[in-house]
C-alpha cells in the first residue's frame, strides 16, 4: 500500500518501541505497521535506539548462566510462532483480537447507522472497530485525550483531511471533528482512545455511558 498519506508520529513510534504504549494504542500501531513499510522502517530505527540504551546501561549484577542453560534444555515455554499475514481484510494482529476476520466481528448498533465492536484490552485505553455506512457521519465530538483512527476499508473525510485505507488520523484535545464516510464503500475503522470522547449533541451525551464511547 503505497498510497498511505497519514502516518504514525514519532511519539507513538517511540512509545511503542519502548513498550510503554497502552495495549489499545499498541493494536492500532501494530495494525498500521502491518500495512505500512515506511512506519515499519521508522519503528526499526526507534528500536535501534532501544538497543543503544541497553548497550549503555550500567551493570552490577550477574545472571546465572547454568540455570539459563537448564532452562534452554526444557525447550521453549510456548511454541515459537511468527505472525505472517493471514488472508483477509484485517492483519493478523487485529484478527487475534477479533477472533477472525471481518465476518467474525460482533457488531452492535450505536445509532445513526453506525455500528461498533469493542475489543478486549487493558483498561488504560480502549479500542473499537467502527462500521460507518457510506455517506454517513459519526456525530461531531471533541477529545479529552488522544484518539487514533485507522482506516481499514473505504474512506472518511473530516474538517482536517481525507483518510483512505491505511491512513491514520491522530486527534488530540484541541481537535473537534465530524468524520463522514465517503460515498461508495462502507467505511471500516479501528479507533482507540485513552479518554472518553466529548460529544456536543445532547442526545449523544445522554447515550454515551450506555454506548461506552
Amino acid at each position: 500500500m503505497s498510497k498511505i498519506k497519514h502516518h504514525l508520529n514519532d511519539a507513538l513510534l517511540m512509545s511503542y518501541a519502548a513498550g510503554s504504549l497502552p495495549e489499545a494504542f499498541g493494536l492500532v500501531v501494530a495494525t498500521h505497521i502491518s500495512m505500512c513499510d515506511d512506519c515499519r522502517a521508522r519503528l526499526g530505527a526507534f528500536e535501534a535506539v532501544g538497543g543503544a540504551m541497553l548497550d549503555d546501561v550500567a551493570t552490577s549484577q550477574d545472571v546465572d548462566l547454568k540455570a539459563t542453560l537448564a532452562l534452554i534444555e526444557k525447550g521453549p515455554k510456548a511454541p515459537i510462532r511468527v505472525d505472517v499475514t493471514k488472508l483477509g481484510l484485517f492483519p493478523s494482529a487485529l484478527q487475534d483480537y477479533v477472533g477472525g476476520d471481518l465476518d467474525a466481528v460482533k457488531w452492535r448498533a450505536v445509532g445513526m447507522g453506525v455500528r461498533q465492536a469493542i475489543l478486549p484490552t487493558s483498561k488504560d485505553a480502549s479500542v473499537r472497530l467502527l462500521h460507518i455506512p457510506a455517506g454517513c457521519a459519526v456525530p461531531d465530538h471533541g477529545h479529552r485525550g488522544t484518539e487514533l483512527t485507522l482506516v481499514l476499508q473505504g474512506a472518511f473525510k473530516d474538517e482536517f483531511d481525507r483518510f483512505g485505507p491505511g491512513d491514520l488520523e491522530i486527534a488530540t484535545e484541541e481537535d473537534v471533528h465530524t468524520p463522514v464516510a465517503e460515498e461508495g464503500v462502507d467505511c471500516i475503522c479501528l479507533a482507540a482512545t485513552d479518554a472518553p470522547l466529548k460529544f456536543r449533541g445532547l442526545v449523544q451525551r445522554i447515550a454515551q455511558p450506555f454506548l461506552r464511547i
Binding site: G19, G26, A30, R40, E47, A48, G51, A93, T121
Partner: peptide, 29 residues
Amino acid sequence: ASVSTWVFTIARNRRIDMIRKQRRPEPDE
C-alpha cells in the same frame, strides 16, 4: 537489526508480559 537491538526487543516484550501483565500486539511479519 543489531544483536543489541534484537535483545532489547525480546527484553521489552518480556517486561510487558511479566511486569505490565499486558498483551503486546505485534505487526505481521
